[in-house]
Amino acid sequence: MSALADVIGKARAEGRAALIAYLPVGYPDVDTSIEAMVAAVEGGADVVEVGVPYSDPGMDGPVIQEAVDVAVRAGVGLREVLRAVEAVAAAGAVPVVMSYWNPIERYGVDRFADDLAAAGGAGAITPDLIPDEAAPWLAATERTGLDRVFLVAPSSTDARLAATSAASRGFVYAASTMGVTGTRATVGDAAERLVARTREVSDIAVCVGLGVSNGDQAAEVAAFADGVIVGSAYVRALLDGGGPAAVRELSADLAAGVRRAGVRA
């Protein structure tokens, strides 16, 4: 069983892709960030990636860095993240934690898995943890039944696509371009090719992240992926001062987008 696979399967049954929203805990402060996550759900997000603030976010572009930096300086940690997980679950969406590896290792891998499961979290996305280095995390997620989402990239070999998909549970995160997070004018063909290559070696759901910022792009990606992941655009809405209301509005636009694409073949 997998909470993420279930929600993605449910969306598929409705003939659409799932909408996955990323927001970091602690920007502009913990309470507002949780309100924003709930607003994302109200606007139509199926899954919320609850972001763990980290001092050295090597895969993130300037937008997410700017917001996360504020949370790091405020001392926001996994205790607050677990509170956000509970709030997202209560709002009716599936919460999945997004964290670089060191905060989890520092908290204690088993302790994190236990506490995340208890808070109602589906699992975690770990952008700088490859399955090759993940033995303790694989064991902890087996024990608790949590999902574990690893990343694939356009540069991944077929062998790595197969191994990474096999190690993942819930979905596999396809990084659409070679680069860091951030909004882009076009998502490009690389994402579609990567999704197709992944499907050749695995049956797991494939969700696409990096670069999607509006309903039209969401529709474009939803035509070939099981889920559309949006991060920087949500964070941008908060950085621009729009607050939870702007997040809700963006979610509605994106939710319409993933429905506009029609049924994936």
Partner: peptide, 8 residues
């Protein structure tokens, strides 16, 4: 401990 994109 790096993103998959750098493994290749």
């Amino acid at each position: 401990f790096v993103p998959e994109a750098l493994i290749a």
